[in-house]
Computed example of a mutant assay.
Amino acid sequence: MGLLFFYCGYSFEAKGQGTDSIGDTAIEVTTPLPKNPKKATILSAILPGAGQVYNDKAWKVPILYAGIITDAYFIGFNNKRYQSFREALFDFDEGIQNDFPSLNRDGLVRNVNYWRRNRDICILLMGAIYALNIIDANVDAHLSGFEISDDLALKVEPHMERFSANNNTMGLALKINFR
Protein backbone atom coordinates (compact mmCIF):
# COMPACT_ATOMS: atom_id res chain seq x y z
CA MET A 1 0.00 0.00 0.00
CA GLY A 2 2.89 2.34 0.77
CA LEU A 3 4.30 1.76 -2.71
CA LEU A 4 0.98 2.81 -4.24
CA PHE A 5 1.06 6.14 -2.41
CA PHE A 6 4.72 6.60 -3.34
CA TYR A 7 3.87 5.84 -6.97
CA CYS A 8 0.93 8.28 -6.97
CA GLY A 9 2.94 10.97 -5.22
CA TYR A 10 5.89 10.76 -7.60
CA SER A 11 5.59 13.30 -10.38
CA PHE A 12 6.24 12.11 -13.91
CA GLU A 13 5.97 15.61 -15.36
CA ALA A 14 9.06 16.57 -17.26
CA LYS A 15 9.83 19.66 -19.22
CA GLY A 16 11.07 19.81 -22.78
CA GLN A 17 13.60 22.55 -23.25
CA GLY A 18 14.57 24.76 -26.12
CA THR A 19 15.78 28.29 -26.65
CA ASP A 20 14.25 31.20 -28.38
CA SER A 21 16.06 34.42 -28.96
CA ILE A 22 14.70 37.91 -28.92
CA GLY A 23 17.39 40.35 -29.94
CA ASP A 24 20.50 39.54 -27.91
CA THR A 25 18.61 37.80 -25.09
CA ALA A 26 18.07 34.03 -25.11
CA ILE A 27 14.85 32.88 -23.48
CA GLU A 28 14.41 29.29 -22.33
CA VAL A 29 11.11 27.83 -23.58
CA THR A 30 9.64 24.99 -21.59
CA THR A 31 6.77 22.86 -22.81
CA PRO A 32 5.21 20.33 -20.45
CA LEU A 33 5.16 16.74 -21.60
CA PRO A 34 1.79 15.02 -21.76
CA LYS A 35 0.24 13.85 -18.51
CA ASN A 36 0.40 10.18 -17.55
CA PRO A 37 -3.10 8.66 -18.11
CA LYS A 38 -2.43 5.74 -15.76
CA LYS A 39 -1.51 8.09 -12.93
CA ALA A 40 -4.54 10.32 -13.57
CA THR A 41 -6.82 7.26 -13.55
CA ILE A 42 -5.38 5.88 -10.32
CA LEU A 43 -5.58 9.26 -8.60
CA SER A 44 -9.22 9.70 -9.61
CA ALA A 45 -10.08 6.18 -8.51
CA ILE A 46 -8.54 6.73 -5.07
CA LEU A 47 -9.91 10.23 -4.53
CA PRO A 48 -12.51 11.62 -6.94
CA GLY A 49 -11.23 14.85 -8.45
CA ALA A 50 -7.54 14.15 -7.80
CA GLY A 51 -7.00 13.15 -11.44
CA GLN A 52 -8.56 16.41 -12.60
CA VAL A 53 -6.20 18.37 -10.32
CA TYR A 54 -3.27 16.35 -11.68
CA ASN A 55 -4.38 17.25 -15.24
CA ASP A 56 -4.49 20.95 -14.27
CA LYS A 57 -8.28 21.04 -14.62
CA ALA A 58 -9.10 21.89 -11.00
CA TRP A 59 -12.16 23.87 -12.11
CA LYS A 60 -13.94 20.52 -12.65
CA VAL A 61 -13.59 19.46 -9.00
CA PRO A 62 -16.38 21.70 -7.57
CA ILE A 63 -18.74 20.46 -10.30
CA LEU A 64 -17.86 16.86 -9.48
CA TYR A 65 -18.37 17.30 -5.75
CA ALA A 66 -21.59 19.27 -6.27
CA GLY A 67 -22.91 16.27 -8.20
CA ILE A 68 -21.77 13.83 -5.52
CA ILE A 69 -23.22 15.88 -2.65
CA THR A 70 -26.52 16.47 -4.47
CA ASP A 71 -26.85 12.79 -5.30
CA ALA A 72 -26.02 11.80 -1.70
CA TYR A 73 -28.74 14.16 -0.47
CA PHE A 74 -31.33 12.58 -2.78
CA ILE A 75 -30.25 9.07 -1.78
CA GLY A 76 -30.90 9.99 1.85
CA PHE A 77 -34.18 11.75 1.06
CA ASN A 78 -35.55 8.87 -1.02
CA ASN A 79 -34.39 6.31 1.54
CA LYS A 80 -36.11 8.22 4.37
CA ARG A 81 -39.40 8.29 2.42
CA TYR A 82 -39.00 4.61 1.50
CA GLN A 83 -38.44 3.65 5.14
CA SER A 84 -41.45 5.67 6.36
CA PHE A 85 -43.82 4.12 3.80
CA ARG A 86 -42.37 0.66 4.43
CA GLU A 87 -42.95 1.07 8.18
CA ALA A 88 -46.50 2.31 7.46
CA LEU A 89 -47.12 -0.78 5.30
CA PHE A 90 -45.94 -3.09 8.11
CA ASP A 91 -48.17 -1.21 10.57
CA PHE A 92 -51.14 -1.48 8.18
CA ASP A 93 -50.61 -5.25 7.86
CA GLU A 94 -50.55 -5.61 11.66
CA GLY A 95 -53.67 -3.45 12.08
CA ILE A 96 -51.84 -0.59 13.79
CA GLN A 97 -52.66 3.04 12.96
CA ASN A 98 -49.98 4.42 10.61
CA ASP A 99 -48.81 7.89 9.53
CA PHE A 100 -50.82 7.73 6.29
CA PRO A 101 -54.43 6.93 7.26
CA SER A 102 -55.83 8.04 3.89
CA LEU A 103 -53.87 5.37 1.96
CA ASN A 104 -55.03 1.80 1.58
CA ARG A 105 -52.63 -1.16 1.25
CA ASP A 106 -52.24 -0.74 -2.54
CA GLY A 107 -51.37 2.94 -2.14
CA LEU A 108 -48.78 2.10 0.50
CA VAL A 109 -47.25 -0.63 -1.71
CA ARG A 110 -47.07 1.79 -4.66
CA ASN A 111 -45.32 4.40 -2.51
CA VAL A 112 -42.88 1.84 -1.09
CA ASN A 113 -41.97 0.72 -4.62
CA TYR A 114 -41.77 4.30 -5.93
CA TRP A 115 -39.38 5.56 -3.22
CA ARG A 116 -37.25 2.38 -3.32
CA ARG A 117 -36.89 2.70 -7.11
CA ASN A 118 -35.91 6.38 -6.80
CA ARG A 119 -33.33 5.53 -4.12
CA ASP A 120 -31.88 2.73 -6.24
CA ILE A 121 -31.66 4.97 -9.32
CA CYS A 122 -29.80 7.59 -7.26
CA ILE A 123 -27.35 4.92 -6.07
CA LEU A 124 -26.73 3.92 -9.69
CA LEU A 125 -26.26 7.59 -10.56
CA MET A 126 -23.59 7.84 -7.84
CA GLY A 127 -21.74 4.95 -9.48
CA ALA A 128 -22.06 6.69 -12.86
CA ILE A 129 -20.66 9.95 -11.44
CA TYR A 130 -17.71 8.03 -9.97
CA ALA A 131 -17.07 6.21 -13.27
CA LEU A 132 -17.32 9.43 -15.32
CA ASN A 133 -14.83 11.06 -12.95
CA ILE A 134 -12.31 8.31 -13.71
CA ILE A 135 -13.03 8.34 -17.46
CA ASP A 136 -12.73 12.13 -17.62
CA ALA A 137 -9.34 12.10 -15.89
CA ASN A 138 -8.05 9.36 -18.20
CA VAL A 139 -9.26 11.01 -21.42
CA ASP A 140 -8.05 14.43 -20.35
CA ALA A 141 -4.58 13.01 -19.63
CA HIS A 142 -4.51 11.32 -23.04
CA LEU A 143 -5.48 14.56 -24.78
CA SER A 144 -3.03 16.72 -22.83
CA GLY A 145 -0.26 16.03 -25.36
CA PHE A 146 -2.10 17.47 -28.34
CA GLU A 147 -0.85 20.85 -29.45
CA ILE A 148 -3.64 23.25 -30.26
CA SER A 149 -2.56 25.87 -32.74
CA ASP A 150 -3.72 29.46 -32.60
CA ASP A 151 -4.02 29.35 -36.39
CA LEU A 152 -7.29 27.40 -36.41
CA ALA A 153 -10.08 29.17 -38.25
CA LEU A 154 -13.75 28.33 -38.64
CA LYS A 155 -15.55 29.97 -41.53
CA VAL A 156 -19.24 29.93 -42.36
CA GLU A 157 -19.80 30.41 -46.08
CA PRO A 158 -22.79 30.12 -48.39
CA HIS A 159 -22.73 26.95 -50.43
CA MET A 160 -24.59 25.94 -53.59
CA GLU A 161 -24.49 22.42 -54.96
CA ARG A 162 -25.90 21.24 -58.26
CA PHE A 163 -27.26 17.69 -58.39
CA SER A 164 -28.61 17.79 -61.90
CA ALA A 165 -29.49 20.37 -64.54
CA ASN A 166 -32.71 21.38 -62.76
CA ASN A 167 -31.91 20.50 -59.16
CA ASN A 168 -29.87 23.00 -57.10
CA THR A 169 -29.41 23.06 -53.34
CA MET A 170 -28.39 26.07 -51.28
CA GLY A 171 -27.11 26.09 -47.71
CA LEU A 172 -24.28 27.00 -45.40
CA ALA A 173 -20.90 25.31 -45.25
CA LEU A 174 -18.64 25.22 -42.19
CA LYS A 175 -14.98 25.17 -43.18
CA ILE A 176 -12.13 24.58 -40.77
CA ASN A 177 -8.71 25.83 -41.86
CA PHE A 178 -5.52 24.43 -40.36
CA ARG A 179 -2.41 26.47 -41.02
Rank of each mutant, 00 (worst) to 15 (best):
P37D: 09
I46H: 12
G51W: 04
L124G: 14
F178E: 13
P48W: 09
L125K: 11
D150I: 01
Q17P: 00
N177G: 07
F74M: 03
K155G: 12
E87A: 09
A45S: 11
I27M: 07
E157K: 04
L64F: 13
Y7V: 09
F100I: 00
A58S: 14
A66N: 02
A72L: 14
F146W: 13
H142Q: 15
L64N: 14
Y130H: 08
L124P: 06
K175A: 00
P37Q: 08
G107D: 14
D140C: 03
N113T: 04
V112W: 10
R119P: 07
D136V: 01
Y65D: 10
L124C: 08
A153C: 07
I121Y: 06
V61P: 14
A173K: 12
N133G: 08
N79E: 02
L4W: 06
T70D: 10
F5I: 08
A165W: 10
A131I: 07
G171L: 00
F77Q: 08
F178S: 10
V109R: 12
D120W: 03
D151T: 01
N177F: 14
P158T: 07
L3W: 03
D151Q: 10
R117C: 05
E94C: 00
M126T: 11
A40H: 15
Q97A: 10
H142S: 05
G2K: 05
N133A: 06
F163K: 03
I46A: 12
V139D: 10
S11M: 04
G18F: 00
V156C: 09
L64R: 11
R116K: 14
M126W: 13
S164N: 10
V53C: 06
R81M: 01
T169N: 10
D150F: 04
V139E: 08
E157R: 04
P48H: 10
Y7I: 09
F146A: 07
I42P: 13
I63G: 13
M170K: 09
N118M: 10
R86A: 03
L124F: 06
Y82F: 13
G67Y: 02
I134N: 09
Q52P: 11
I134E: 12
M160D: 02
V156E: 09
P34F: 00
Y114Q: 11
F92P: 00
E161S: 01
D106K: 14
R119N: 07
F12I: 00
G9M: 07
I121T: 08
E147G: 01
L152Q: 13
P101N: 04
A40T: 12
N133K: 01
I68D: 14
Y7S: 14
Y10S: 11
N79F: 02
K35N: 01
L152P: 02
L154V: 12
F85G: 01
P62H: 12
N166E: 15
